[in-house]
C-alpha cells in the first residue's frame, strides 16, 4: 500500500460521498422540517437516472439528456408532493412508512412496465472519457472528477441558500422548530412543496450522474436510500452541514475500508481468516459506524440547534 494509492482511494471515497450527499441533502430536510419519513426517496434517484438515460438514448446527446432530465425530476417531485405526500404530513410515522413503501413498489413496477426489466445501456460521451493526473503517475477519470465538482458546487449552492437567503432562514427555522415556524405565518405548504421538489431534483441529479457508471435498472435506488438514511442519522436529522460531513465520512469509510481492511487483517492473521473476516467487517463498517455514533451521540453528530 503506497501513499499515492491511499490518496487515490480518498478521492474515490470523496466521489462516493458527494453522490450520497446529493441524495441525503433533500431527505434530511424532508425528515427534519416536515417530520416525514419518506422511504421512496431512492425512487427519485431511479427516476432521474431513467429520465437522463432515456433522453440520452433518444437524442444521442448526453448533455441534452441531463438538461432535460433536471426539470422532469423537479416536476415529478412537485406532483408527488401535491398528489400524495401533502395528505400524509399529519399522519404518524407508521402510516408514512406504509404509504411510502407502497410508493416504492409502485415506482419500481411502473419503470419495469415502461422500460422493461433489463438494465438500460448508458455511457458518457467520449469527450469525458479521458484521465487527469491527480498525482504523478496516478491518472484519474475526468468524469468522476466532474461528479465531485458538480457535487461540491451543489453543496455550496445549498449551503449559501440555506444560510444567506430569506427562504433559507425559514428552512432553518423549520428544521429546529416546525410548529413555531407555522405559527409565525410562514406559508408552510408552499415551502414544503418547494423543498420536496428540490430534494427530488438533487436526488435525481445524483441518479443522472451515476447512471453512466452503474447499471440503470428498476430498484437501483433502494441500496442508496439505506445508505443515505445512514448518512442523515449520523449527521443529525435536518442538518445539511451534518449530512455533508457524514456523507463524506461514509463514502471514505466504505471505500477505504473495503480495500484496506482485508489488507490490514492480513498483517496479523492468517490469509484465509483475513479473507473471511475482512470483507465481512467491511460490509458491516457503515452500520458499525452508525451504531457507535448513536450510542455516544443519540441524535447524531450535528443536530440542528433547538431540536
Amino acid at each position: 500500500m503506497t501513499l499515492t494509492l491511499l490518496l487515490e482511494q480518498i478521492f474515490n471515497g470523496l466521489q462516493a460521498g458527494i453522490t450520497l450527499f446529493l441524495i441525503a441533502a433533500g431527505l434530511t430536510l424532508i425528515l427534519g422540517i416536515m417530520d416525514f419519513v419518506f422511504l421512496a426517496h431512492g425512487s427519485q434517484v431511479m427516476i432521474g437516472a431513467y429520465a437522463a438515460a432515456a433522453i440520452t438514448i433518444a437524442t444521442n446527446n448526453f448533455y441534452f439528456g441531463i438538461l432535460a432530465a433536471i426539470p422532469i425530476t423537479f416536476v415529478c417531485g412537485y406532483l408527488l408532493e401535491w398528489l400524495i405526500i401533502r395528505h400524509l404530513y399529519r399522519r404518524d410515522h407508521m402510516d408514512q412508512v406504509l404509504a411510502t413503501f407502497g410508493l416504492i413498489l409502485f415506482f419500481n413496477e411502473a419503470i419495469r412496465i415502461g422500460f422493461g426489466p433489463a438494465a438500460l445501456f448508458t455511457n458518457f460521451p467520449s469527450s469525458l472519457s479521458g484521465f487527469i493526473e491527480i498525482l504523478p503517475d496516478t491518472p484519474y477519470p475526468v468524469y468522476r472528477i466532474l461528479i465531485i465538482l458538480v457535487g461540491l458546487l451543489c453543496a455550496l449552492g445549498i449551503h449559501l441558500f440555506v444560510s444567506r437567503t430569506r427562504v433559507g432562514a425559514m428552512v432553518r427555522a423549520g428544521a429546529s422548530n416546525p410548529e413555531m415556524t407555522a405559527a409565525l405565518g410562514i406559508n408552510v405548504k408552499i415551502l414544503f412543496r418547494f423543498i420536496f421538489a428540490a430534494g427530488a431534483t438533487f436526488a435525481g441529479l445524483a441518479g443522472m450522474m451515476i447512471g453512466p457508471l452503474t447499471s440503470v435498472e428498476p430498484g437501483m435506488g433502494e441500496p442508496l436510500l439505506i445508505l443515505s438514511l445512514v448518512v442523515i442519522i449520523i449527521g443529525g436529522i435536518g442538518s445539511v452541514r451534518g449530512a455533508f460531513i457524514a456523507a463524506i465520512l461514509i463514502g471514505l469509510v466504505d471505500t477505504v475500508g473495503r480495500v484496506m481492511l482485508p489488507m490490514l487483517f492480513k498483517t496479523f492473521m492468517s490469509v484465509s481468516t483475513a479473507d473471511t473476516a475482512g470483507p465481512a467487517l467491511a460490509s458491516m463498517s457503515v452500520y458499525i459506524l452508525m451504531a457507535v455514533v448513536l450510542v455516544f451521540k443519540p441524535t447524531g453528530l450535528f443536530p440542528p440547534k433547538g431540536a
Partner: peptide
C-alpha cells in the same frame, strides 16, 4: 490477490484503483 467485493456493489472504482497499483 484475492478480493471479495460487497454483494450488490455498484461502484468498483476503489477496487480498480487497488488493481491498478
Amino acid at each position: 490477490g484475492e478480493v471479495y467485493t460487497k454483494l450488490g456493489q455498484t461502484d468498483f472504482q476503489a477496487e480498480l484503483s487497488a488493481l491498478r497499483a
